[in-house]
Nucleic acid binder design. Structure first.
Lengths: 160, 160
DNA sequence: TCCTGATACTTAGCAAAGCTAAAGAAATGG
DNA sequence: CCATTTCTTTAGCTTTGCTAAGTATCAGGA
């Protein structure tokens, strides 16, 4: 199809929506990165910290799974967060191979500040939208997390 | 506010929505990157190519502006796309400093294939959603692009 | 007890994408 | 004609992502 604007007749709505969400996500993140740049907390670190604050302590592997990255990537993110005093790494008393990563009080506090700073400009723009549009975006954020988030790994042992 | 889970009473809905969109965007992009990894076209290249295909030829600076990156970043993206034969760089006849970047036919074709490949898994999941939810996401993609996209730079000269 | 295999994390090393600073070339304006 | 501005590139840095390989621990069986 060499005619991009030719409104593909039987093209799937889902496929086009996926492509547009992809594009919107790229531009959204670039926008937020430009706005921030002063919080000292990059997006991946903020995101990982957020999981720990709102979801409680996790092993490195579980955190990597929740964040959709490989363990070595998470090792580095956690190292940076630990160096900044935002998380701690404890030995897992039940498994000598594993570590338990926990947000510190400083981490909890910085999360709010950092997140607010990063999203403040976007929030201002969203606040200018009609309430109806804002509701659509809120609903969409929910739906997206549901679609994108991997199902929690089945508990391998008695970790309930 | 030091109690993250304390459901801040007067907190702004816009602020919370912004934070959740941020999180959803991060996870969406990581998910898509995992799915892809075979198209040979990374997300930033795909995105830049998309702007050129659907929006027509642009100068490097304009493309960088549209994509919310700095010129040196776009220089490198364009170099990679050119090396792959997906775009061309011509001299601007009206301004010897500028270049005009244009998608090739190969670029137009690969855009569709690459985008489809990258978003296919997501599209499949979206297709499984209720029509109502899909409509919400489509609308959200629209709204987000509108909020996030910078207003087109005022035409500095006769470039209409 | 001592292997054997699986699992959890780290280390090493690579590529891509983002940035700033600064250089080179061309346009603009006095 | 010269100074300034603008557009792009180059150089070099950081961060994030990956795979491959190494180390430590756990679990099960001979």
């Amino acid at each position: 199809m060499s005619e991009p604007g030719a409104s593909p007749p039987s093209d799937d709505l889902a496929a086009r929506t996926a492509a547009r969400l992809h594009s919107a996500a790229i531009h959204l993140l670039r926008r937020l990165r430009r706005e921030d740049n002063a919080s000292g907390l990059t997006a991946p670190r903020l995101s990982a910290l957020s999981v720990l604050v709102f979801g409680g302590p996790l092993s490195l592997g579980a955190l990597a799974g929740a964040e959709q990255v490989r363990p070595p990537t998470m090792t580095r993110l956690v190292a940076a967060l630990e160096w900044d005093g935002l998380v701690t790494r404890e030995a897992d008393p039940r498994d000598g191979r594993a570590i338990i990563i926990r947000a510190t009080e400083a981490g909890k506090h910085l999360l709010e500040a950092g997140r607010d700073r990063r999203t403040a400009a976007l929030a201002r723009q969203l606040a200018a939208l009609p309430a109806e549009d804002l509701a659509v975006l809120e609903r969409a954020a929910d739906l997206l997390e549901g679609v994108v988030t991997p199902p929690p790994a089945p508990p391998r042992r008695g970790e309930g």
